[in-house]
Write a protein that binds this DNA or RNA. Structure first.
Lengths: 337, 337
DNA sequence: CTGAAAGCGCTTACAG
DNA sequence: CTGAAAGCGCTTACAG
C-alpha cells in the first residue's frame, strides 16, 4: 500500500509537508505543492483513514442508525441529512440494525469506537434505552430522532405527535363529524400513545362524548388497519370519520372499507399521519389520504446542527426540539351531511 | 478517553492480554478474562476503531454507495445486504451521493482510504467510469451492482434486462397482442437500452411488424410515462398493449390512460419492470401492475459473496454475474379479444 | 498463560 | 517555507 512516506520520497520532501498538502494547509511553496500533488496522482495515493482518525481524533463522519430501511417518508430524511451534513463538510453513513438488537449494539460500538464523531439514532424503539444510556455514559455526541426516553437527558428531535393528532381530529370535527374513531399504533411506542392522547384530548375538549368502541387498539402491524376498520364498520352505529395512527393503516383501512362497500369519503372520512402520499403520487390510487405531514427538512437540519454542536463541544446541554406537523388535504375527507 | 492501557492497569495485566480478551482470542486464564471484562464494563471502555483498523489493516466493514435513497425496490436490497453481511461478521454502512459526483468521489475516497475493506457501488451512472477505473487501479475490492462498463474488468452483478424485456413482451404476444408499444428510459443508461433492445428482439422474432410510432423515447423522468401514453393513445391506431421501462412509468401511464377514458386492461394491457408492487400493496390502487421482478435476495447474496471473496483475495479474477427476472402477474393485462 | 517491544500511517507541536 | 520527533491506541510476532 502506498503511504505518505512513499509520496514524500518521490516528491523529495518530508512527510510533514505532504501532510500539509493533503490537508490543504497553507504555508507550502506552490511548486512544492504541485510536485507533491503530481506524486499523489501518479501513485494513486489515498491517505489512510484509520491513521488520520487515530491521530487527529476525529473521523469527519456522522453515523446514523436506522431500525430498518423501509419505504417511508423517513427515507427522504436520509437524503436530507446527507445534504445538510455535506454543507458542514461531514460525511454521513447509514446503517440498519434490521430490527435486531445485537446488530444495533454492534453498530453503536462501531460508531462510538471512533468510526464516527457523532451518532444519530433514528426511530422509536423502547429497547434502545440501555444502549442510549451507555452512549451518554461515555459522553459521546448523540442525537435521537423520533425516539424519546423521559428519564434520559439527551439531544432529542421529536415530532409533536400529540398536537398533530389533536389537529387531525379537530379537522374532522370542523367538518361536522362527531362519530370519530381512532386506530392506535403500538402503545409501547411513544409516538402511538401521544397520537392516541391527542385524539382523546380533541374529542374531550370539543364536548363530543368519548366512545370507547371507537378506539381500536393495534400494534400497527401488517393488516392492522384492515382488521380494525372491519370491526368499526360492523358496529351498530359505525363512525363517520376515522383517524389512524399512520398512513399505512389509513390506506389499508380505506382499501378494506371500500371492499366492504363503504364509500370513501362519503360514508367515512379518513385522516392518517406521516403523509406518505408524495412518495406514491405516481400510483393510480382512487384516494389521496388526508394526513399530518412532518417537516422533514427542518428535522434534518436540526439534527445535523445539534450533532455538530455536540461534536464541537461535548459539554453542551442536551436539547429537546419539537416540531409541529401540518395537515395535507387529500381526497379522503368530506363534510358530514 | 479510556484506552486499552487504562484497562490493563485496572485489571493488573498487560495490554497484550487485554487485546486478547477484546478479540475473543484463546489462551487467557478464565479469572484473568473475567477481571478484564469487569474493568471494561466498569470504565465503559470501547476499543478505538481507528487504531484497530490501522494495525490490523482491516476495518470489518463493507461500504455501499447509492446514488440516492429512494422509494424503490432497491431499498429492500439494502436490508438484504445487511442481512448477508452480518452472517459473515461484517458491518455494512451505506452512503448516498445524492446524485452529486463530488460527493460520490468523497465517499469513494473515504471507503477506499481504509474506512471499509471493500466497496459496493450500486446503481447505474455513466459518470462513474473514471472513479471505477481509479478504484481498479489501486486494486481495492469492488463490486458493481446494476451498473456496467464494457471495457472495465470488475466484479459485476447485473440483471438481464434484455431477456427480461423480451419475456415481458413475449408475455403480451402470448395474450394475442400485436400492437405493442414501448416507453423507453434514458438510453444513456445501459438498463434502458437493454430493455428497449429486448422489446425489439421480441417483436422481430415473433413476426410482428415493427412500428416506430409505438416506441416513445423518454428520459424516465417524472411524468414521462404520462406524456408518452398520451401520445400513444392519440395515434390513429393506438396500441393494445404497452411495455414500459419501469413501474413508475407504468403506473403513471395507467393513471393517465384511465384519465383519458382508456379502460385498463380492456383497452390497454400494461407490463412494467421492477415490480415495485409489493412495496405498495397497502395502497388502494385500482390496478396491480404486471411487471418483471428482480431477484433481490440473490443479488444481495451474490454481491456479499463476491466482495468478501475479493477482500480475502485481492487477486481474484473479476466476475460478472447475471440474474434473470421473472414475471409478476398483476391485473393490468388481459387477452386480446 | 502472559508481557515487552515494534510498528501500523498519519498529524501535531516545535524548531529552524 | 520545511523537517525531525513524538505519539495517537491498538495488534502482532516473539520470547518466556
Amino acid at each position: 500500500m502506498i503511504n505518505i512516506f512513499d509520496i514524500a520520497r518521490i516528491a523529495g520532501v518530508s512527510k510533514t509537508t505532504v501532510s500539509r498538502v493533503i490537508n490543504n494547509q497553507p504555508g507550502v511553496r506552490e511548486d512544492t505543492r504541485i510536485r507533491i500533488l503530481e506524486a499523489i496522482e501518479k501513485l494513486n495515493y489515498i491517505p489512510n483513514q484509520a491513521a488520520r482518525s487515530l491521530v487527529s481524533r476525529k473521523a469527519g463522519v456522522i453515523g446514523v442508525i436506522y431500525n430498518e430501511f423501509n419505504t417511508s417518508v423517513y427515507l427522504k430524511l436520509a437524503n436530507l441529512l446527507e445534504d445538510f451534513a455535506s454543507r458542514y463538510n461531514y460525511n454521513i453513513v447509514f446503517s440498519s440494525s434490521n430490527d435486531d438488537f445485537n446488530s444495533k449494539a454492534r453498530y453503536v460500538q462501531y460508531f462510538t469506537g471512533g468510526a464516527a464523531d457523532g451518532l444519530i439514532l433514528f426511530g422509536s424503539d423502547t429497547r434502545d434505552k440501555e444502549l442510549v444510556q451507555k452512549i451518554i455514559n461515555i459522553n459521546f455526541p448523540l442525537v435521537l430522532i423520533e425516539n424519546h426516553f423521559n428519564d434520559l437527558k439527551v439531544n432529542n428531535i421529536i415530532i409533536d405527535n400529540f398536537s398533530g393528532a389533536k389537529s387531525a381530529v379537530n379537522f374532522l370535527i370542523g367538518l361536522g363529524h362527531s362519530k370519530i374513531a381512532h386506530i392506535t399504533g403500538n402503545l409501547n411506542h411513544r409516538a402511538a400513545s401521544d397520537r392516541m392522547n391527542g385524539y382523546i384530548e380533541a374529542i374531550n375538549s370539543s364536548g363530543i362524548k368519548y366512545n370507547k368502541d371507537y378506539v381500536i387498539y393495534t400494534d400497527a402491524g401488517d393488516s392492522s388497519g384492515a382488521a380494525a376498520v372491519e370491526r368499526l364498520m360492523s358496529l351498530a352505529e359505525p363512525p363517520t370519520a376515522l383517524f389512524t395512527f399512520n398512513d399505512l393503516q389509513g390506506y389499508e383501512a380505506v382499501q378494506r372499507a371500500m371492499e366492504l362497500g363503504v364509500n370513501i369519503p362519503r360514508d367515512l372520512s379518513v385522516v392518517g399521519f406521516d403523509n406518505i402520499y408524495e412518495l406514491l403520487r405516481f400510483i393510480p390510487s382512487c384516494i389521496r389520504l388526508t394526513s399530518m405531514k412532518q417537516p422533514m427538512e427542518k428535522v434534518a437540519e436540526a439534527a445535523i446542527k445539534l450533532i455538530i454542536d455536540n461534536i464541537d463541544n461535548r459539554n453542551t446541554k442536551p436539547r429537546v426540539i419539537s416540531f409541529d406537523t401540518e395537515i395535507y388535504e387529500g381526497t379522503s375527507c368530506i363534510e358530514v351531511i
